[in-house]
Nucleic acid binder design. Structure first.
Lengths: 150, 150
DNA sequence: ATCATTATTGTATATTTATTCAAACAATAA
DNA sequence: TTATTGTTTGAATAAATATACAATAATGAT
């Protein structure tokens, strides 16, 4: 059943390389790469990958990968659904991995909205260190952060 | 006819402040602010604002503003549709305005994909300077860039 | 191996979102 | 004024996307 993982990666690749307007279209491209699935499955894949359908400015729609980390790679799938794949705790700190260059933007978003769960952030290039306030559990904190990493 | 502009701004505000899962829901919130429109109009507004519906990781969907600049404010609407509101030319250079902190991330995306139209990018905090290759017209260049700023 | 549990998937359908078409309205020019 | 053109909108509908349900396949424990 590792073909699902391959399929998800293929979807990411196709979406980055080509202009895909709807799932039907993506379905055909996948077919060309020998992945034969239905629209229902593709819809679920897209949801899992957190892929967004955005407006291209003209009159078309395009699928795009999210800003945050590589959703495919990480750890076990059960753990993946539990919290956001890009968020990891260590002691009382939280580390958020982002795509290169996006850390400051996302940190800036977090700061601008200043959810009470979060005391401060420090951002590098692809990593944000989040310092939570005392008195919130990890799930609550993770939710507060997840709101900003799409 | 300025009520449309107000409505678009209200939509932006609501989406930033609240978790909106679908257009019906947003419609109700707008109603509460005394904007009475139909789903059809809202769909068009969302398209114009380049708002995306993304996956929240759990099992819900959320509407989000794009990464790039403030689409509502700028210049005339006819000019706005012509090219992306965040992209502006000056001589042989292009300046892209982004939300605070996002310039480097987006520039990194552009560099990583390296469309031939683009020779180099330099990013500050909320501004990217794009240096196009010679031989492409502005529209072509704008399209190549627009691909990365959602 | 056997059973229990969890994941993955397709079919059919529900839900959600976009668009077509016609109408109302405004702005402009003659 | 009267055309003319462009914008905005709603109603109805089309198109696109998500999900309920059932079945099948994988995984893990004993």
């Amino acid at each position: 059943m590792s073909s699902k993982k391959e399929r998800l990666e293929a979807i990411c690749r196709i979406i980055q390389a080509e202009v895909i307007c709807n799932q039907e279209e993506l379905l055909k491209r996948l077919e060309a790469y020998d992945f034969s699935i239905t629209q229902a499955t593709l819809s679920r894949d897209i949801k899992q990958l957190k892929i967004a359908r955005i407006h291209d400015g003209k009159d078309a729609y395009v699928y795009r990968l999210p800003n945050a980390a590589l959703p495919v790679t990480s750890t076990s799938s059960s753990e993946q659904t539990k919290t956001h794949p890009a968020i990891e705790f260590s002691g009382n700190l939280v580390v958020v991995k982002t795509r290169p260059g996006y850390a400051m933007g996302i940190a800036s978003d977090i700061d601008a909205n200043a959810p009470h769960e979060i005391l401060a952030t420090i951002a590098g290039d692809d990593t944000i260190l989040v310092i939570p306030r005392e008195g919130y559990n990890r799930e609550r904190i993770a939710e507060a952060i997840a709101r900003f990493i799409q």
